[in-house]
Design a binder for these strands. Structure first.
Ligand SMILES: [Mn+2]
Ligand SMILES: [Mn+2]
Ligand SMILES: [Mn+2]
Ligand SMILES: [Mn+2]
Lengths: 146, 146
DNA sequence: CGCAGAGTTTAGCCTTGGCTACATTAGTGT
DNA sequence: ACACTAATGTAGCCAAGGCTAAACTCTGCG
C-alpha cells in the first residue's frame, strides 16, 4: 500500500490521540496525588510526615521519596525544611482531600460490584487517578441508588 | 517525637507498599498494552501498521513511537525490519486480544454505570491497565446480570 | 531513470521516578 | 559533653517516554 491517504486517517487522529493524551496527563499527576494523600495520612496518624515513613509506606527508598517531595515543593503542594518533617500547603491539603474522597468512592464501587476487598484495595490504587469528575459522579450515584 | 518506634510502623509497611507496587507494575506495562492493541487495530483496518500511523493515533511523534516499538521488539511482542511495517509476534497478538477484551469490558461497565459515552471512552483508556483479572470477572458478571 | 517528497531512523536532549552508595545532621543516652 | 545511631540529604547511575533536528531510505511519477 503505502498510499498517501491522509484523508482517510485524518478524522480519527484527534479522536484516538485525545484519549491517550488524557491518560498520560492523569498519569503525570498520579504520583503527586498519592504522595499528597500519604503525607496527609501520616500527619493525621502520627502527627508528622517523615521521609522515612513516607518512603516505607510508598514502597520506595528514601532518596526516591525525597525526590518526590522535592517535586511537590516545586509544584507548591508541600513545604519542608532540612531534617524536619514534610507539610502540605493549603493547595496540598485540598488535593489530598479530593484524592482521598475519590479513592474511597472507587474502592467502594469495586466492592459494591462484587470485587473481593483485597483485590479492590490493590486495583483502586491505580484506577483512581483515571477517574474523571464526571465518572466519579456516576459512581456516587450508583452507590447511592443501590 | 522522633522515637525509634519501628515496631509500630512495621505492620503497615508491606500493606500499603504492596498496593503502590502493584499500581507501578501495572503502569510499567501500560504502554506495551496500548501499542499492542493499536498495532493490531491498524493491521486489521489498514492491512499494515506503519510507524507514522501508530504515532499519530497514539498522539506522539514518530521517534517516540519508534522507541516504543523498539521496546516491544526487545520484549518479544513485535517484529519489524527497517523501513517496513510493524508486526506482532504470537505473544503480541495474544496480549492485544486480552487487552482489547478488557478495554471493551471496562468501557461497557462505565457506560452501564451511567457515565456519558465520550467520558467513558476517555477514562477507560487509563483505567483499563489497573483492572486485574479478578476485577474484570466481577465487571463481566455485573454486566451479564444487569 | 532519476528524483522529490513521504516515511523512517538516528542522535541527542529533557524530565520523571526508580536505585545504590556515601556524607551529613541531629537526637538520645551514658 | 559526647559518642552512637537513626534519619536525612546528596551524588550519580539507569530506564522509560516525551521532544526536536537532521540524516537516511524508499517509491511513485515525470
Ligand atoms: Mn493511587
Ligand atoms: Mn490513593
Ligand atoms: Mn490504555
Ligand atoms: Mn486500550
Amino acid at each position: 500500500m503505502r498510499v498517501t491517504d491522509q484523508s482517510i486517517s485524518e478524522p480519527d487522529l484527534p479522536c484516538d490521540a485525545e484519549r491517550f493524551n488524557q491518560a498520560r496527563a492523569a498519569q503525570s499527576v498520579a504520583v503527586l496525588e498519592d504522595y499528597a494523600e500519604m503525607i496527609d495520612d501520616l500527619i493525621a496518624e502520627m502527627g508528622e510526615a517523615r521521609i522515612t515513613d513516607i518512603a516505607s509506606r510508598m514502597g520506595v527508598t528514601n532518596p526516591t521519596a525525597t525526590k518526590a517531595v522535592a517535586r511537590m515543593k516545586r509544584e507548591g503542594l508541600a513545604v519542608s525544611r532540612p531534617y524536619r518533617g514534610v507539610f502540605l500547603t493549603p493547595e496540598g491539603v485540598t488535593l489530598a482531600a479530593r484524592v482521598r474522597a475519590r479513592h474511597q468512592v472507587v474502592l467502594e464501587l469495586l466492592i459494591a460490584l462484587g470485587v473481593p476487598a483485597e483485590t479492590a484495595r490493590l486495583d483502586a490504587e491505580g484506577m483512581e487517578h483515571h477517574v474523571s469528575d464526571v465518572t466519579l459522579k456516576a459512581f456516587e450515584a450508583f452507590l447511592a441508588a443501590r
